[in-house]
Amino acid sequence: MPDQPGDVWDRRVASGLAFLRRRLSGDYQVDEFGFDPELTESVFHPMLRLLYRDWFRTEVTGLEHVPADGAGLVVGNHSGTVALDALILSAALHDQHPAHRYLRLLGADLVFRMPVVSEIARKTGGTVACNPDAERLLRSGEVVGVFPEGFKGVGKLYSDRYKLQRFGRGGFVSAALRTGTPIVPVAIVGGEEIYPMLADIKPLARLLKLPYFPVTPTFPWLGPLGMVPLPSKWLIEFCPPIPTAHLTDSADDPLVVFNLADQVRETIQQTLYSLLERRPDPFGP
């Protein structure tokens, strides 16, 4: 006999009450970094699912390149004024990967100095972007996500959209080399259009101790409404992994690190160009 509408709602209510009891009693697990899988799946991913699936109409390809088990280092381009791309990538990977892998994001120090944001980042699996934490996660078999452009990528002007910024010193490459972890480049198209950054008011950014203060077509003109992201069409493509197991003795060789970082950067840049050709209309279906 098929479920009746009332049965479905009864199960949802019972599940919700059970979830609340576990939270209030402390009967749930977190790891050494503060990651809370139950809270992530029950609260944060459903909210992000509305964004990536319904608002951004995200298409994901190349998921077979993300390991079904064991460690992987996912390296992506960063953009969008507000770093929604990292969160969207994390939720889409978990939902659509056959093994439902969690993406353990590495974030800037600023993220973990902000009271509420820091707690959310920890609960959803994030940690500070430093080599010791990255290597611990990789050695424990996690899929780790890093965005080497950092604030240079997120805070660039719309006129520089989809032009990768400098990758820094290649710390992510060293972490992959020391642990023999494959590097999976990922290209994300769509993030540049959600808050097109027309200008950066640098004096105000310095006053507020922010990396930039954006001016977009809707912010600050529309106040809080200016924080609603524009409904751009997103394409995410995971590229074939770059093996590193044969280079573990070269983790401290600057030339090897630079060349590998440059290979990852070029792979992402060329994939972005390819995805942009597939998506001629930023706000199309």
Score class of each variant (00 low, 15 high):
Met1Cys: 05
Pro5Ile: 11
Trp9Ile: 15
Val13Met: 09
Leu17Pro: 06
Phe19Asp: 04
Leu24Glu: 04
Ser25Pro: 04
Gly26Gln: 00
Glu32Cys: 07
Thr40Asn: 12
Glu41Trp: 07
Glu41Ile: 08
Phe44Tyr: 15
His45Ile: 14
Tyr52Met: 02
Asp54Thr: 10
Gly62Ser: 10
Leu63Lys: 04
Pro67Trp: 02
Pro67Leu: 05
Pro67Glu: 01
Asp69Gln: 13
Asp69Lys: 10
Ala71Pro: 06
His78Ala: 11
Thr81Val: 03
Ala91Tyr: 02
His97Leu: 13
Leu106Phe: 12
Asp109Thr: 14
Val111Thr: 13
Ser118Gly: 13
Glu119Tyr: 14
Thr124Asp: 05
Glu135Thr: 11
Arg139Ala: 05
Arg161Phe: 01
Tyr162Lys: 06
Leu164Pro: 00
Gln165Phe: 10
Phe167Asn: 11
Phe167Val: 12
Gly168Ser: 12
Arg169His: 15
Phe172Gln: 07
Val173Asp: 00
Arg178Ser: 03
Val186Cys: 04
Val189Trp: 09
Gly191Met: 09
Glu192Val: 02
Leu204Met: 12
Leu208Gln: 08
Lys209Asp: 08
Phe213Leu: 07
Pro217Gly: 06
Pro220Ser: 06
Leu222Cys: 09
Gly223Leu: 05
Phe238Asp: 00
Cys239Leu: 15
Pro240Ile: 07
Thr244Lys: 00
His246Met: 06
Thr248Ile: 08
Ser250Phe: 00
Asp253Ser: 02
Phe258Pro: 03
Leu260Trp: 00
Ile268Asp: 00
Tyr273Ala: 14
Leu275Ile: 03
Arg279His: 12
Pro282Gly: 03
